[in-house]
Simulated assay, not measured.
Amino acid sequence: MSDDEKARAATIFDVARLAGVSHQTVSRVLNDLPNVRPATRARVEQAIKQLRYVPSPAARALVTRRTRTVGLIVTGAPDYGPSSTALHFNEAARDARYSVITSSMLETDAASMRSAAELLVRQNVEAIVLIAAHRAAFDSLDGIELGVPVVAVASEDRGSMHRVWLDQYAGARLAVEHLIGLGHRNIRHLAGPTDSMDATERVRGWANVMGEHGLPAREPLVGDWSPGSGYVHGRVLAEDREMTAVFVSNDQMALGVIHALAEAGRSVPGDVSIVGFDDIPEAEFFAPPLTTVRQDFLELGRDAMAGVLAALGDDDRMPAPRVPDLVVRDSTAVLGGTPAVPDDADRTAVSS
């Protein structure tokens, strides 16, 4: 590539990266605005010279202003939790009179994530919300100076990003304490993917409760969130005659586990109690209806927008984490087969 081609290819973001500043700082230098330290200004000017950057009129206009537009990046497959959170975030943004520009992507490599974020910034978003299943997506953006706040919907603390979250660890504790309260002692766990933050927190909750009660936490099985994965691991669990309960990291895998146990002649909850996680709309129509940990994705979506307003200085503070609830249905029973919920009780009553 010739020098002239390099000059034409260079963007304000290339200058910002080379100078180690935000694109907004570059814009202030280009527009000869105050509040830029001399050393920083010199560094930016050197980067402009080195890249032979020629700013466009649009780049010169790229200074801080209120556009009432927010960017949303959603990665991975359209699973129930992330999709529901994104939907309710969009509704909350509309209620706050903000528009949303969405980037949905399957790939979460660093280059793709950075490209998606920079494209949103070029469209003058005031902030970016990131909803992703895997920690690699968050790590790809951590430490990159975008010039706008990033609000992560993440159950782990990922670097310098603002964060809103549902407490997966606390939810897992509710599930396991419920099973132990029913007399179960040999409780297996079918976890989600190892690179999932939610799955990791649920493993931690299960293992800690088992340890606190002096019970062995055997190595968890690892699935991929799908019913098929639950079925494959359910066939393995069916051979474990000492196991009397399974905490499954999501409802979809729980469906597969129940099916595999039934094929092996082990009834739920007569022989094995099952607790899932999420409370998907189908959970109460499983056979038997599934005891599960309910996550409030509506409120999580609203929290994400509240987090944006807090990051922009329009609100007092970031939302506190939310603790899920336990929904007790027919898939769990007292050790020996007595239903956990009496016949005349509300089988979808929420307990916490």
Rank of each mutant, 00 (worst) to 15 (best):
Val268Glu: 08
Ser249Ala: 14
Ile48Gln: 07
Ser115Cys: 07
Arg52His: 05
Val341Ile: 07
Gly214Asn: 11
Met113Asn: 09
Leu312Tyr: 12
Gly76Pro: 04
Ser103Gly: 02
Ile128Val: 09
Gly192Trp: 10
Thr200Val: 02
Arg266Ala: 04
Ser22His: 01
Asp344Tyr: 06
Met318Lys: 05
Asp198Glu: 09
Leu290Pro: 01
Ser351His: 06
Asp167Lys: 08
Val232Gly: 09
Arg347Cys: 03
Glu282Ile: 09
Thr291Phe: 10
Leu87His: 13
Pro288Asp: 01
Gly336Asp: 01
Val203Cys: 11
Ser56Gln: 10
Leu106His: 08
Arg8Thr: 02
Ala170Glu: 12
Thr194Lys: 03
Gly336Met: 04
Ile187Cys: 05
Ser115Gln: 13
Leu335Ile: 07
Arg317Lys: 11
Arg322Glu: 12
Thr338Cys: 00
Ala340Arg: 03
Thr25Val: 05
Arg218Ala: 12
Ala345Gln: 05
Trp165Thr: 02
Val327Lys: 10
Val222Gln: 09
Val70Pro: 00
Pro227Ser: 11
Phe247Trp: 15
Arg43Leu: 04
Asp325Ala: 14
Glu145Asn: 04
His189Asp: 13
Val222Asn: 03
Asp278Asn: 13
Gly230Ile: 10
Val148Gln: 03
Ala310Asp: 10
Asp316Thr: 11
Arg60Thr: 02
Gln123Ala: 11
Ser27Leu: 05
Ala349Glu: 13
Arg94Glu: 12
Ala207Ile: 04
Asp278Val: 07
Ala175Asn: 12
Thr40Gln: 06
Met210Tyr: 13
Asp198Asn: 06
Val74Asp: 01
Asn186Lys: 12
Pro289Trp: 15
Gly71Ser: 08
Asp315Lys: 15
Ala61Gly: 11
Val248Pro: 00
Leu182Pro: 08
Ser84Gln: 15
Gly143His: 13
Thr64Met: 14
Arg17Lys: 06
Ala110Gln: 10
Val36Ser: 03
His213Met: 07
His178Gly: 10
Leu87Phe: 13
Ala287Thr: 09
Pro339Gln: 14
His233Pro: 00
Arg235Pro: 00
Asp32Val: 00
His184Ile: 04
Val153Thr: 07
Val334Asn: 05
Val248Arg: 11
Pro227Ile: 15
Arg94Cys: 00
Leu221Gly: 15
Ala61Asn: 05
Arg114Gln: 12
Leu87Ile: 01
Ala333Leu: 12
Leu72Phe: 01
Arg235Asn: 00
Val341Lys: 07
Leu120Cys: 04
Pro55Lys: 02
Glu177Gly: 00
Ala170Thr: 13
Glu212Pro: 00
Asp224Ala: 10
Ala110Met: 01
Met305Asp: 02
Ala340Gln: 05
Arg66Asn: 08
